[in-house]
Structures are given as C-alpha cells and as structure tokens.
Simulated scan of single mutants.
Amino acid sequence: MKGEGYNFSKWFRGGKSIFFGSAGGTLATNETIFSAVTRLSNAMASLPLKLYKDFSPVNTSVSDLLANAPNRNMSSFDFIRTLETHRDTSGNGYALKMYGSNYQVESLVILDPARVQPVIEKDTLDLWYEVEGDKGRYYVHNMDMIHVKHIHTNGYKGISPLAVLRNTIDFDEKVRQFSLDTMDGAVKASFILKMATHLSTDKKKEVLANFKNFYQENGGVLIQESGVEIDPIKRDFMDTKVFEVEKITRSRVATVYNMPVHMLGETEGVNYNSMEQLSLDFVQNTLIPIVRQYEQELNRKLLTPKERLRGLYFKFNVNALLRGDMKTRGDFYFKGVRSGLFKPNEIRAWEELPPEKGGDSLYMSRDLSPIEERKEPGKGVSGR
C-alpha cells in the first residue's frame, strides 16, 4: 500500500525477493525468440541512462540509484536487462519502489510478473497492483510500482508476445521433432552394393567386410570392379522443410517484436547500403517507443512534480547506437563543428576524450574564428 514509511520487509524471505522469477521457459527451447529477447534486453541495458537538467547531467540520490545499483543485488545493466526480458516474455515488467525511513526511494526490486495483477479501485478509480505474496495478497499504488509493458487493450496490462507467438512456437517445435524422428528412423547405410551373382550369407559378409576395410584404409576412395555396382544413398532432409519453417519463424518473431528480421540472422532480401542504415532501422522502429516508455515511467514515478517543474528528466542516450564507423563519424563531426552545431569538447566527450582549452566555443566556417569574436566590432569578418 501507499504510505509514508510503508514496510515491505515481510514480502521477503532470507534477503531475497520471493517474486523475482524466470519469465517463461520458452526462452530455453526456442533459439529465435531467445535471440530476439536477448537483442532487445541487451540494447536497452547498454544505453546510457542519466538524469538531466537543461541538457546537462545532474547527480542526485535517485540518479545514482539507477545508474549504479538499483538494489543491493543488481547492477544497473542487470536491472534494465531483466526488466526488459520480463516485458518481452510475459508482456510486463514490474519493479517495486522500496522506501527508507524518510520516505526516500532506497532501492528498486524486480517482481515476478506472474504474481502481479493491475486492478482499478472502485471508488477512486486509481490504479493499484494486486501482488500475490508468500503471506497473502498485497495492494500497491501505481505510483509505488515501476511498470513497463507491451501493447495492451485496457491501458494497464501488456499482452504477452509469447502468447501471440504460441501457434508459431508449437508449429516450429513439431517440425523440429518430426525432423529428428525422421533422422533417427532413417536407414544408416551409406552405399548400395549390387552384385552380378547371388552370394551365400557368409560370402556377403566377407564382401561387406572387405568393402568397409578398403574404404577406411584408402581415405574413402572406392574402386568399382567388374560385376559390382556402388550406388551412394542420398539423404535429403530438406523434404521436412526445416529451413523454410525457420524462415517463417524468424519472420513472425521479428514482426511480433517489431524489429528488423535481419537482426535475427535473416539476410535474404535484406538490402542496406551501410551499417548506419541497419542501426537506424533498429533504433527508429524498435527502440524509440520502448525508450520513450521507460523515460516517461521513470520521470513520473521517480521524480516529484517540483523536480519536473525545475526541468529534471531521465533520458536514455540512443546516439550511442548510431555512431557509425570512423569515417562516417569523422564527416559528421567535421560538418557539425564547421556549421556551429557542436563544440569541440562535446565531440571529445562523446569519444571519451578529456576536454581541451578553447574547446567550449562554437566555431563557424571560413577561418573558424570563435563566434564571439565575429560579434565584436573590429574583429573577424564583421570588423572589415
């Protein structure tokens, strides 16, 4: 429940959250879904997350919490990746705000989404979360719970992507099992020996033994004698359409997770001129909506209205995924400096280099004199 100094300690047993669980066994049995969830969760966890004010990073207890250790058992990377993994499997990721004695957020603890259910309070119409604990049922106000989700129909609980993909997963598993059964039940022989005459049982065994020994001792080379025909047995497991099914599975998984199919290993029909276009496609069409949801959830529930009015906001830096190769970055930085868009020290910070004296000024083209000098009479072009 919501309230100053509310104690959630009875929800825990032995220092470990009883709700922190695995979000679906399908990840361990389907490589395509595992790849998609890994790609999304790693991408979100790799994005730098900072608290800003007027475009400049600021440090507070809450920003330090998110940037380093949201709880005593997890780093920021593990926290975001696990939350995103839950969102991409069950459709919902939950993290409970844990308060200290002065009602300051001290930690964020991830809950098992299978034990959390959004509900609407009848009189106030406020959103609460019904949590099944080890000692009963608890209710948490929506401002005390970080909740990221997939698309939904009621505005409160996301739809599970695995539920959407259930038919695809079942079909894929059946085709794979059929393929394995076919391989196990197939004839193990590799050649057919045709003799011109009928041979006794003992003679057949002798010929077969000689054939095997000669094949092994001569590196797989066979000599076809007169009266003997050697036909290799061809095995074509493509009849099971395994590869076609895998392509269909990749396409459907990519569609459900709203990500380019090439991110799951599909290269057929993919035509991109550069790695920048590949990254841009993934960032614009896949990550931006997810990033925006995280930012708004953190701004709303980890910042007070006064802090937001002062201009504080959380922001993921997606530019880290769009840096391109050395040549592309160099051209971009060069044009940015010459057009007065970037300061040299800003670029040095992006490249993780220390600032230099004079690098905090904006420059213009031609003689690249500081903009301030051009505004002063008698200096630069304006003084001519």
Rank of each mutant, 00 (worst) to 15 (best):
E132V: 14
K2D: 06
P377E: 10
V256E: 01
M74P: 14
K212E: 05
R308K: 11
S339D: 12
D126K: 12
K212I: 02
F314G: 02
S369M: 09
V119T: 13
M238N: 14
N102T: 15
L341C: 10
L108R: 00
F77M: 00
R338V: 13
F79P: 10
S35C: 03
I146V: 01
L302Q: 00
R338D: 11
P232S: 03
K327I: 13
G93T: 04
K306L: 08
S22R: 15
L303R: 03
D202Q: 14
G340P: 15
N102G: 10
Q277C: 04
Y363S: 05
K327D: 06
G185R: 01
E225C: 01
R137E: 12
G358F: 11
G5L: 05
Y99C: 09
S75F: 05
M1P: 05
G383S: 08
L65K: 01
I151H: 06
N345R: 10
Y272T: 05
W350R: 08
S160R: 02
S17W: 15
F282K: 05
V381L: 00
F243Q: 00
L193N: 01
F237R: 08
K122V: 09
K375R: 08
M98P: 01
N273A: 15
D88E: 11
D202K: 12
E246W: 04
P377N: 08
V131D: 06
I120M: 00
D236G: 01
V105K: 03
T26A: 11
L309A: 07
L49C: 14
E132Y: 15
T197E: 14
E4V: 11
L65V: 02
D331I: 08
T182D: 07
D123T: 06
F342K: 08
L302V: 01
Q296L: 08
D170H: 12
Y94I: 12
K97Q: 14
T249Q: 10
S107E: 13
E31T: 07
K149W: 03
L65W: 04
G324Y: 00
D134C: 09
G324P: 14
H152D: 04
S279Y: 14
A45R: 03
D170E: 13
L222P: 05
L368W: 11
G220F: 06
D54N: 13
I120V: 03
E229L: 09
A23L: 02
Q216W: 01
F19I: 07
E84T: 15
D134V: 15
M44L: 04
R250W: 06
F20Y: 06
F8G: 10
G380L: 04
G265T: 04
D170M: 11
Y333Q: 08
L280Y: 07
N273H: 03
R13T: 07
G155Q: 07
Q104K: 09
K247Q: 02
N71R: 02
K379E: 08
P161V: 08
P377L: 05
L321Q: 04
N59W: 07
D281L: 00
P57Q: 12
V256C: 00
A43N: 07
T286G: 03
V140K: 01
S382E: 12
V140I: 03
R176G: 13
D181S: 09
L47K: 11
E217Q: 12
K315E: 06
T82I: 07
L66N: 03
R87H: 02
L162P: 06
A209I: 01
N271C: 06
Q224S: 07
N345V: 06
P70D: 02
A95P: 15
I80Q: 15
S90W: 02
F191E: 14
F314H: 04
T124H: 09
T255E: 08
D126N: 12
A320I: 01
D112Q: 01
